[in-house]
Amino acid sequence: MSAEIFNPNPTIFATTKSKTTYAKPSSLWLDESDESDEDELDGNNEREEIDQDEIFELIRSISDPEHRSMTLEQLAVVSAPQISFDSPSSSSRRNVTVEFTPTVPHCGMSTFIGLSIRVRLLRSLPNRFKVEIRVKPGSHQSENALNKQLNDKERVAAALENPALVEVLEQCLAGATA
């Protein structure tokens, strides 16, 4: 990794306890499933859908590449309200958008953070989930370039064939180490 420190002294936020049960009734997309009651009757949609909190559970413990002892949640890089869904009509596909907030607008690690979120979700979610990763609007000086890079499937695929990068990625995905 680069020796340059982008944010030497990040603010650390309190975290919530890992949830063992998920607050389904209060999930924000429940309204949407009410609208499509008829669709719910057939097959796939009958089962309980993965919600915001479950996606958040998957990514909260990823460690920050610059401050390995801290998680993305502790640095408020990721949060449950920054996860949203939309389901195209007449399709079993489900689009998930995960927004994250770099700790500083010049954070050179943002591409890496986005990639680690994408890889965690690629490995954990069923194939019908299509993940879009974006930085929070206004939170990074190269916002458009970052968003473009993080959602270019060819570049993501190529990055994941880079052994040096994958090694660091695996360390971050293994979780924060004190």
């Binding site: 079993s92 299509k130 499937k153």
Partner: peptide
Amino acid sequence: LEGAHDVFD
């Protein structure tokens, strides 16, 4: 043709 490769791209 929708879902040419099921849920895959």
